[in-house]
Design a protein around this nucleic acid. Structure first.
Length: 524
RNA sequence: GGCCCCAUCGUAUAGUGGUUUAGUACACGUGGUUCUCAGCCACGUAACACCAGUUCAAAUCUGGUUGGGGCCA
């Protein structure tokens, strides 16, 4: 009941996420985790991470680590499980098998569950038939009335079997914090399978046991679980467990309005991380997928989300994942970073692109691509990959600072700034042409540039001075672009870049003039 | 097919019977800002799925239709 919820005392809230370690942490799970985390934090409760690893065939050994690493990276920290806490553990289902067996036996002993010997083919045929005549595809109850002796006999013979829960024919209703009252007619469900055998519980059964044993107060999960809820409630009732409060979150949808999945492209958090998204941006973005504070403020840190979050303000309809908005948010958070921090964050991308190289103190320690940065123990210095020229932190920071506001993703840094790290630029001579300039005009601009710049002393080689000297020259021409475009193109080899003066300053007098001469060489 | 959930600009959403010529952000378009790009600023395009009903008054309440989605070991 919503009323109950209002009287929750601090510390009484216990929520959880229970991912199956079958793949990398994806957006959907991360968003569910976020909402659970925010709710727990807001109510000074506990947030439990439980691993649902009973489906041995589908488990990916790397998944658990990936899930935990990326949750931490996002700043979503759990207070219990899989290796933290322990009072209510263990937190991996594979380590809880005796617990499930105990309850399974209880249900069997009370005749609230029974063994079923129907074959899969038989069941499938029945399902198809039922669907073809427009009936709900529920189990016929063929094995429901088997005598104890008959069951014992078949079990002894080793006949393949599963365990079914006797679903009572009654109406089930529950109050969802987000959707209000939801009703189901359980007589339509049919007796559900709750375990393959005593040692192999199935999802709907295991969750109920775990949530009870772990004293979960609120089950906050995706909307795709709504139809599982009545089944779980019935099992709870059969076992005499109290009912947790439910809140079903709207789904995250792909552009085609179906549940976001792998075929929609990247959905793993680690993939976003690799592409240069910031955890702040991802968190802010995910929070607004199905929730909003009711004000016009859009920028929220984790701390302010915790303060403002409430399940009452969660949307009912599914939300389409719009990456353009994530990009905008990411760009925003990049612009908020200090240059020092942003430089650290960009370093791995420059290294990966082969633009710069770290020089390690102890070669033996290096096994994979370092996400190391200046100040790290094992990195001695960085050098330009091509020329082995040592580069200073100052130099890198200057480069990063002129691209900070142009960056949407960290990964873009290498493509944007590669010309700073290359000895020779490779571009078509046409790039030097501004609008309808003739070769003669380009040549003349370049010559003028070289002449003027050569006269500037090295100690006066600053962005401001360069601008003060060159701008009046540009003004003299019919169009400022006639001087500035060839300059910038010669320095960067790119159609688009930061401004020419700041680039020239960073490049230094020598390289600037060298590049102008090289450009001059392209025009016969 | 059965059951369940959902429905405001392209997207995320504000809106809880009158204050609404339906607001904001992203995206998009136009203009401005030292050549370009980005950023920033300004302006603009753009939505209550439909049909009934309740009411003096409905995006907001009720019913239905349509559409979309989820689940069905």
């Amino acid at each position: 009941m919503i009323e109950d919820f209002k009287f929750i005392k601090p510390g009484e809230v216990r929520v959880r996420i229970a991912p199956a370690p079958t793949g990398l942490l994806h957006i959907g799970t991360a968003r569910t985790a976020l909402f659970n985390y925010l709710f727990a934090k807001k109510n000074q409760g506990s947030f439990i991470l439980r691993i649902e690893d009973t489906d041995i065939e589908r488990i990916d050994p790397r998944a658990e680590k990936d899930i935990m690493e990326n949750l931490k990276w996002l700043g979503i920290e759990w207070t219990e499980g899989p290796d933290i806490g322990g009072e209510y553990g263990p937190y991996r289902q594979s380590q809880r098998l005796e617990i499930y067996a105990k309850y399974l036996e209880k249900l069997l002993a009370e005749d609230k569950a029974y063994y079923c010997f129907c074959s899969e083919e038989e069941l499938e045929a029945e399902k198809q038939y039922k669907m073809s005549i427009g009936e709900p595809p529920r189990y016929s109850g063929k094995c429901a009335q088997l005598s104890k002796e008959e069951v014992q006999k078949r079990l002894a013979e080793g006949q393949p079997s599963i365990i079914r829960f006797r679903v009572p024919a009654k109406k089930v209703e529950f109050e969802d914090l987000i959707r209000g009252k939801i009703e189901f007619d359980a007589s339509l469900i049919g007796d559900i399978v709750i375990a393959k055998d005593l040692a192999t519980p199935l999802y709907n059964f295991a969750v109920v046991i775990d949530d009870f044993e772990m004293k979960i107060s609120h089950v906050i999960r995706g909307e795709d679980h709504i139809s599982n809820t009545p089944k779980q409630i019935l099992i709870q009732e059969a076992l005499g467990f109290p009912r947790p409060i439910y809140a079903h979150l709207p789904l995250i949808l792909g552009p085609d309005r179906t549940k976001l999945s792998k075929r929609h492209g990247a959905i793993a958090i680690s993939e976003y991380k690799k592409r240069g998204y910031l955890p702040e941006a991802l968190v802010n973005f995910m929070a607004f997928l199905g929730w909003n504070p009711g004000t016009e403020r859009e920028i929220y840190s984790m701390a302010s989300l915790i303060k403002e979050f409430s399940l009452e303000r969660v949307q009912k309809g599914g939300a389409i994942f719009n990456i353009k908005r994530l990009d905008f948010l990411n760009g925003f958070y990049i612009r908020q970073k200090s240059i020092e921090k942003l430089t650290e964050l960009c370093l791995p991308y420059l290294i990966e692109a082969g633009l710069i190289e770290p020089v390690f103190k102890e070669e033996s320690k290096v096994s994979e691509l370092p996400t190391a940065f200046f100040g790290t123990e094992i990195v001695q210095k960085y050098e330009i990959a091509e020329t082995k020229e040592e580069i200073s932190l100052e130099f890198l920071r200057k480069i990063i600072s002129i691209y900070q506001e142009r960056l949407k993703k960290l990964s873009e840094i290498s493509e944007l700034t590669d010309f700073f790290f290359k000895d020779k630029l490779d571009y078509d001579k046409e790039l030097l042409r501004w609008k309808e300039m003739t070769d003669e005009e380009i040549r003349s601009s370049l010559d003028k540039l070289e002449k003027i710049l050569s006269r500037i002393k090295t100690e006066d080689w600053t962005k401001e001075n360069l601008e003060n000297i060159l701008m009046p020259e540009a003004e003299k021409m019919a169009d400022r672009g006639m001087l500035l475009w060839p300059l910038r193109a010669a320095l960067t080899g790119k159609e688009a870049s930061a401004g020419p003066f700041e680039i020239a300053e960073i490049l230094g007098k020598e390289k600037t003039i060298k590049r102008i001469k090289e450009a001059r060489g392209l025009i016969k």
